[in-house]
Design a protein around this nucleic acid. Structure first.
Lengths: 170, 170
DNA sequence: CAGTATCCTGTCCGATACTG
DNA sequence: CAGTATCGGACAGGATACTG
């Protein structure tokens, strides 16, 4: 972990990636959302080497995404549950899912999101909570430096705006 | 690429990760969303080794997330632009951003999403497009096997539902 | 069943030097 | 400026054996 170089450590995206950037982490979380809790459940589902699973689970626990709960002594054994921080990762997972469905599933969708009551297929969109308008609409929304932005982050936006400027005047 | 093992290759999340799973890929996309297009712009912003940048850019082009456009001959030089597939990645980025802000920014938020007209801070939420209700509400929505689900995928859901069953009856 | 302990390999990634 | 070429190291990840 802590791959984030100095230039990027102020960026929330880089920080997130620092926690879940490794290949297996997100798939383990996926299975945690599916309700898996035990070592061998994860192992069978993922077909991952046991030492790797052990390492990744420990990592996710350390980052506060999963929490270990003992369910027996002698020998001590645990189940792994999503913490609040882990559950909050859900939008990322579902966005990833939607993106994969849209672009990498020529044969059709293998996993979909549905409404429980009706079983009806549902399409997840990212919107502004207050107004309900899609935040992906670049005419309406943009990213901007926040209160804790450091110099590097600010510079990034300065460059962006300068570039926009030249585009609109040329 | 193509790290996805057989067990997972039917999963849309795994497929997505196959495209953007490497550490730098997502940060390069981040900068592409910030409007960067040239090699050295990326390099300065990210502080990445040139060979790595070269490889990752080539990878993203190959996966159809970026597209190269020549802007001079002799020597031939390109700019890199987001394709539609790349732009569609935005919800994932913003979800990652929101998650990072919420959980890994004790000193405050460094990057925020704002409404362009007002400059007002905005909170992105993932909702069902039709009803506007948050898809993260597990009481209302769930994931389910889709039309292209294979045996492995189906089994995953069968196990999930079986586990839910035992939880509710115990 | 739930892991730990070892060993090995691939490759991601960094540093640096070079070119038109 | 926009890359390519090479070298090396660290570590993610795989295979396997072992334990209570």
């Amino acid at each position: 972990m802590q791959r984030t170089s100095f230039e990027n450590m102020n960026c929330p995206i880089a920080r997130s990636l620092d926690r879940v950037g490794e290949w297996w982490s997100i798939l383990i979380l996926r299975d945690a959302f599916y309700g898996l809790t035990r070592f061998d459940e994860f192992q069978k589902s993922l077909n991952i080497a046991p030492n790797m699973l052990s390492r990744r689970l420990a990592g996710l626990v350390e980052e506060g995404l999963l929490e270990k709960r003992p369910y027996q002594d002698k020998p001590l054994r645990h189940e792994y549950f999503l913490t609040e921080r882990g559950r909050d990762f859900r939008p990322v997972m579902l966005a990833l899912l939607a993106w994969g469905n849209r672009h990498f599933a020529p044969e059709g969708e293998a996993v979909i999101v549905t409404e429980r009551a009706t079983g009806e297929r549902v399409e997840p969109v990212l919107v502004d909570r207050a107004s309900g308008r899609p935040v992906t609409d670049e005419a309406l929304f943009e990213t901007a430096p926040g209160p804790a932005a450091d110099e590097t982050t600010r510079a990034r936006f300065t460059r962006r705006d300068a570039k926009r400027e030249t585009l609109s005047t040329s």
